[in-house]
Simulated scan of single mutants.
Amino acid sequence: MAFEFRKALVTEQSRIWEILEQAIIRRKEDGSKQWQDGYPNPDVVRKDIETGVGFVLIEDSTIIGYAAVLINDEPSYADIEGEWLSNEDFVVVHRVAVAQNHLGKGLSGKILEYIEEYAASENIYSVKVDTNFDNIAMMKILEKRGYIYCGEVYFRGSPRRAYEKMWS
């Protein structure tokens, strides 16, 4: 399969939101508290796109996945309870979501792979990411891709599992 991973366009906002809405519903059905508090929302997606941090995974000209990819930009990561593997430049991953009809194909892992390639293209060899304690699927994906559990960070008052992957 040929995939494309690139920055999202403003015209793609509604499709991206549709994918995130599906993921929000899945989290709820899985009994997860992640994304059940009004975040993310369409304003978050719009801001991601406007600031150039929203990325889409495309297959056959259809958007099938989304992630926000930031460089050195996550203030809450400074207050980790634990220890990051590095204090070097890093890429942050937020809001990873795959379209409902494309689940079970390893696409979240594929998105992380593209993000790692993007980081390397920016001469950055560290990717940091966090997920909810009850998002078992994402924890398994991170561990499978070689991410190391580093401790806890807090978002909107809730603890989250923090991971980092480094390479050279």
Rank of each mutant, 00 (worst) to 15 (best):
Y114Q: 07
Y125H: 09
T62I: 14
A68Q: 10
I64T: 08
P40E: 11
V96F: 07
P40K: 10
V93K: 03
T131Y: 04
E18V: 07
M1E: 02
I19Q: 01
M139K: 12
R145Q: 14
E50L: 12
V56P: 00
I64A: 04
E74L: 11
G38V: 06
L103C: 10
I136R: 10
I71M: 10
K110T: 11
E21P: 00
R160P: 08
K128F: 12
D130V: 03
T51P: 01
G38Y: 09
A23L: 01
S86G: 04
Y154T: 08
V69F: 14
A162N: 01
M1Y: 10
Q22Y: 11
L57A: 08
K28C: 10
F133M: 07
H94W: 08
R26P: 07
Y149W: 00
V98L: 15
F155D: 12
I64P: 01
Y66R: 02
S61N: 14
R161M: 14
D48M: 11
R46V: 06
I49E: 01
A97L: 07
E21L: 13
S158W: 13
G52F: 01
A120L: 01
E122P: 08
G157C: 10
K140P: 04
F3K: 05
A78F: 06
T11S: 12
H94I: 08
D134P: 03
S76F: 03
N132C: 07
V56Q: 01
A68T: 13
F90R: 00
F3L: 02
A8S: 03
K165W: 04
I24G: 04
E143F: 12
I16F: 02
L142G: 00
T51F: 12
A119G: 15
F90N: 11
T11D: 11
Y163Q: 06
I58G: 04
I141Y: 02
F55K: 08
E122N: 13
F155P: 08
K128R: 15
Q34R: 01
Q22F: 03
A78K: 06
E117Y: 08
Y118R: 12
D60F: 11
Q22K: 09
I124D: 05
R95G: 10
I136K: 11
R95W: 06
D79P: 03
Y66S: 07
G146K: 13
K47R: 09
V53N: 03
E152C: 06
G157T: 07
K28S: 14
R6M: 06
V129F: 03
G109I: 02
I64E: 00
S108N: 06
K47W: 11
I148C: 03
I63S: 07
G109L: 14
K144T: 01
T51C: 12
I148R: 11
K128D: 07
Y118P: 00
Y118S: 13
A120I: 02
I19G: 02
D73N: 14
Q100A: 12
K140N: 14
N87M: 14
K28P: 09
I71L: 10
I25H: 03
V92C: 02
Y147I: 09
P159K: 04
D73H: 15
E18G: 08
L70R: 13
K33P: 05
R27D: 02
A8K: 00
P75R: 13
K140V: 14
E117K: 12
